[in-house]
Design a protein around this nucleic acid. Structure first.
Lengths: 148, 148
DNA sequence: TGAATTTATATCGTACACGATTAAATCGTT
DNA sequence: AACGATTTAATCGTGTACGATATAAATTCA
């Protein structure tokens, strides 16, 4: 056996890429963002921006902190993202008069209107995935469990 | 019902964050990287760098392209990452004399030696995850199927 | 009250991801 | 041989992620 080239079997099983749940997760997440991109480009959104809009379409206004709780992201990620959404005219940000530490994020009319154009994104992605609905639901719940 | 605040039920089911497989994927992947961080900090690696090292521990040398196929990443992501691994003394990069377009990535002694210190990372992460082994395997295969 | 602590964002530096473009080397076909 | 098409990495610009730190407002409590 070659001395210079490590054959696959030389690597312990636990270090094999194929065996790693986390790599599968990492790869699938990257793929997913790439799958979304063409759909979201039409809306002028990135995937994380789309997620933020989903949260706001569900309920608005919300504070930056509440948004971060929903998305599991902190302000160092959200602040620049929200500034870009604001620059795009989709949201408005203002300090909470009740508590000047908080920043309230609210949809603009343009932001609300975008929901109508986003309504068929899940359907299109579902088709692109080509996976039974119940399998998707099962996988989703497993992943939520992983994320605790 | 309020005009200014959209209640959760106002958003169509398909746009609810809770229902989105992709968000579950996105969140779980982010969590996973955060879970790895303290373990990998000790090795001086980021999570994507760790993945690249896993691939090289399995087989080296490899071209940048082969590495990209294994990780499903392209050169715009890999080139800077590999330069950092090279700067850290873990790998060496050289043009393939056979085909000057290709760049061959190989482990240094230091890179090979790092495997011994990385050997217990999967075990530690497995403990942190606290999930039955067969459930992990099942989830992993599901995710690979999603990524096609 | 007022100092110490906590809380809510923002800022900064580092490191991915990825589309688009570039540049060099190789290949195919004539 | 020649030259256009293809392949392989690198480069560039934009947008996340996130730890560490900063800042300011609110809260606690001595």
């Amino acid at each position: 056996m070659s001395q210079k080239t490590a054959a696959p079997s030389d690597s312990p099983e636990v270090l094999r890429l194929d065996n790693q749940l986390c790599f599968a997760l990492y790869g699938a997440a990257n793929r997913m963002t790439r799958l979304y991109r063409p759909l979201l480009d039409a809306l002028g959104l990135t995937y994380p921006q789309y997620l933020a809009m989903l949260v706001l379409w569900e309920q608005s206004p919300r504070t930056v902190g509440a948004l971060g709780d929903a998305l599991d992201l902190d302000s160092s990620t959200l602040t620049p993202l929200l500034k870009r959404l604001e620059a795009g005219g989709l949201i408005a940000r203002r300090r909470d008069p009740e508590d000047e530490r908080r920043v309230i994020v609210d949809l603009t009319d343009k932001g609300r209107a975008l929901r109508d154009r986003a309504i068929d994104v899940p359907e299109k992605l579902f088709c692109a995935l080509d996976m039974p609905l119940d399998a998707m639901a099962a996988l989703r719940e497993r992943l939520k469990a992983v994320a605790r």
